[in-house]
Design a protein around this nucleic acid. Structure first.
Lengths: 219, 219
DNA sequence: GATGAACATACTACCGGGTATGTTGTCAAC
DNA sequence: GTTGACAACATACCCGGTAGTATGTTCATC
């Protein structure tokens, strides 16, 4: 069985809602205070529970954090899966991909912040040797995810639909732009789905122009 | 007297090199490990010294961090000062400003990462009440700095030299893009000043196009 | 009614921020 | 040229907070 929690699946857990609730709370706490400043008691308190509950499901704080990271990446893959292999030219595919990604950054902000911090932790080497391999796998998952975008813009450039200098730099700038809502977005009261879509399209338009996309999209 | 350290001034210190060396080491450590994960002993060790030296000059870890933040912002203002009030249209002024800023992000990466983390700490409210006012002042300094860019692109839009939707969103995207080298840049061996300039221009070109600047600059 | 999952409670151990107290060199005044 | 005062550190110590553990407790299920 695949119990549904929020909009992503937590298949691999035999137990349903419990771990998912922990993940949500952990994502919120890690986002609000950062990894080091977040104590297990913080997460437990925000659940109305105690340490015991968390340590019953996770062997360590780092493992909990890593699982939030993993869940975040899983959501990303799930989100873009329906639009990964659409027909048409690379530029059009990229627009759809990018838009879907940005909406995901906004909707799942807390998890995505953890993905960001986890990536930084890995790159800084701020992990114990045992956690190193776990984080390495997560980081590679994120790299593969990023490679989808990278390859698409490379193809669009070949098509003559994008113009930029170094692919590496363009890729970094694009990803930073598309991810940036995790830093500056905060929900307005009474905000509709259309409002979010509008914001997302502005982000995509900025990135598209930055990548030298042919027709300047305005929306 | 104004003793020079690196490329920025440390006027306000009666004592010269000592505090500056601490700042440099602290900036490195905070960048490598983050605020919480960095211990005062780490900073001291990277100086070949002990806690005593640091606590002789700074009353607390947060004050040391804040001073790195302050020094970083001071560098930024110093860097753009010569190009703040150049003649000409807003778009041209913006290009110069943006380029100078990006080069600064690359050259003073460690300090700028601290500025970033400090801003996040303030926005998250991860400060004690006493430190709150210090951080508020630093954050306001950074806001004023950002406002220079914001106002310039607003003017360029009025001139018809830029096209974008929401000023607020465009501003966020621009700043994230221009700041992004603090995340992905790492020096290549044998890299020249021209190489860095080339990277910086690519960043500026991306942001310019993203903002809908009229003539697509290529360099 | 026994077994184990799913927690809560109570406790330990350690790390790191901060402090209190040396130690050394320098410089000024007598 | 002695002393005393202070800056600039080093050393030794304290203590609170937190990750992790060990041990209950409850409830469901077989």
């Amino acid at each position: 069985m695949a119990p549904k929690v929020g909009e992503y699946r937590v298949d691999q857990y035999a137990t349903d809602g419990s771990r998912a609730a922990i993940l949500e709370a952990a994502a919120r706490c890690f986002t609000e205070r950062g990894y080091d400043a977040t104590s297990i008691d913080d997460v437990a308190r925000s659940l109305g529970a105690t340490k015991g509950r968390i340590y019953h499901h996770y062997p360590s704080k780092a493992d909990l954090f890593a699982d939030v990271f993993r869940a975040g990446m899983e959501m990303n893959y799930a989100a873009i899966e329906p639009v990964r292999d659409l027909p048409g030219k690379a530029l059009g595919r990229w627009r759809t991909l990018a838009f879907t990604h940005v909406v995901q950054m906004i909707r799942r902000r807390t998890f995505q912040r953890v993905v960001w911090e986890g990536t930084e932790m890995y790159l800084r080497g701020a992990t114990t040797p045992q956690q190193r391999s776990t984080f390495a796998a997560l980081h590679e998952s994120r790299s593969r995810y990023g490679a989808i975008f990278r390859q698409t813009i490379a193809e669009a450039k070949k098509d003559g639909d994008m113009r930029f200098g170094s692919l590496g730099i363009a890729n970094q700038l694009m990803l930073v732009t598309l991810n940036s809502p995790i830093f500056w977005y905060s929900p307005r009261p009474g905000e509709t789905r259309d409002d979010i879509d509008d914001i997302a399209w502005q982000v995509v338009a900025f990135a598209a122009s930055g990548l030298g996309a042919s027709e300047g999209e305005f929306r």
